[in-house]
Design a protein around this nucleic acid. Structure first.
Lengths: 200, 200
DNA sequence: GCGGATACTAGAACACGTTCTTGTACGGCG
DNA sequence: CGCCGTACAAGAACGTGTTCTAGTATCCGC
């Protein structure tokens, strides 16, 4: 259960300056994404804002997609910490999972540009980004599974359910950024899927 | 129910030469996609192979994503016709839906490069491609719903189920082209989702 | 403190999606 | 038949992700 973090799997020891650079890059990325979405995250601009050379940016994150997926891992980590502060309300699995996914969804959709950038990157990820994407999916699955089991160990079935719900969640995000459904509809669809998948 | 085709919604009357150009473009697209996937479908190359100028290609399909989504609609249409030739085998909803999705999945995965190109385009679609994407999704939903109801009229619930299954189907394709799961695993996951969503 | 490796900077260069420009062919209308 | 507008051809040009080059700084072992 629960991989502690989906962030960098590379366990290279970094100097303080390097950690600071990495942090500046992620911050610049989030700021640009928040302002104008995926297309506004331009590598030259990220490099300039984080005060590193373009080549250095590419040394830290080998592509725009790597960069944005890493930024998403960073955001999810923040959300996980925030959620862990207090117990998840709800007496049934459905209620708790709905709570967690709703919190996450709304927290993201409060910043539609950022969401668009992060989700689009997840979708654009090819095999070279597999590690980072797996990290994000694990973090997300952890959120769902914790809500389902409320602490106790998950069954194999639980993991499968979490996977399906996550698939639906991502697919609905895509539908939203494909302009085919409104952001309220997204939430209705996800709730419906939760009720369906987790019905007793 | 069942929009007859998800292809061009534009009902502009085309001359014979124009229909031929459009067909050549789609064929060239499919050929290139089949050979090298998404990145091998280069607009200059498509234009050259279909013997139209680059500007003309863009007149017919305003972006690479439009082009590939239209190609997917074309392929799904072929599949629909093929499936309609004979009755769908299976006595339960699960069996029939499994049959249809398995046929479709395998038929696509027999050509992984093509699948990668088409699925990636679906994921990359933004609001400007909403019409084409909706067409593809309708075609796909029709396939599933027809399998579920085996002819009779679908309930509102059925449509929702078809939507969820389609979401899972796409999400699993992404997982596959993200290099995170093998093509057998995809199929297991989809079967599992079918069993779960359509359990009685 | 010194030498060599590694990381970083600055910026040019390249690739491909997309747009723009200029000239030409074609199809309908008087 | 001749004219005009629209579609097409050919290719240059532009933007942004990515790579490459040359020079400089920083860090680590001696």
């Amino acid at each position: 259960m629960a991989t502690p973090a989906g962030a960098a799997v590379t366990s290279e020891p970094e100097t303080t300056a390097q950690r600071a650079r990495r942090a500046r890059i992620i911050q610049a990325t989030l700021a640009l994404a928040s302002r104008g979405g995926y297309e506004a995250v331009q590598m030259r601009e990220v490099a300039e804002r984080s005060e590193v050379a373009l080549g250095t940016l590419y040394r830290y994150f080998p592509s725009k997609v790597h960069l944005l997926v890493s930024a998403m891992a960073h955001e999810l980590e923040r959300m996980r910490i925030r959620l862990q502060r207090k117990a998840i309300p709800g007496t049934t699995r459905q209620e708790r999972v709905s709570y967690v996914l709703e919190r996450s969804t709304h927290s993201l959709q409060r910043d539609p540009n950022l969401t668009e950038a992060l989700v689009r990157a997840m979708m654009a990820a090819d095999a070279t980004v597999a590690d980072e994407v797996t990290g994000v999916r694990n973090q997300m699955a952890d959120l769902i599974i914790q809500a389902m089991r409320n602490g106790s160990a998950p069954s194999e079935e639980d993991v499968a359910y979490a996977g399906i719900l996550q698939d639906v969640w991502f697919a609905r995000q895509i539908a939203w950024l494909g302009g085919r459904v409104s952001s309220e509809d997204i939430w209705n669809d996800i709730e419906q899927a939760i009720a369906l998948v987790l019905r007793d």
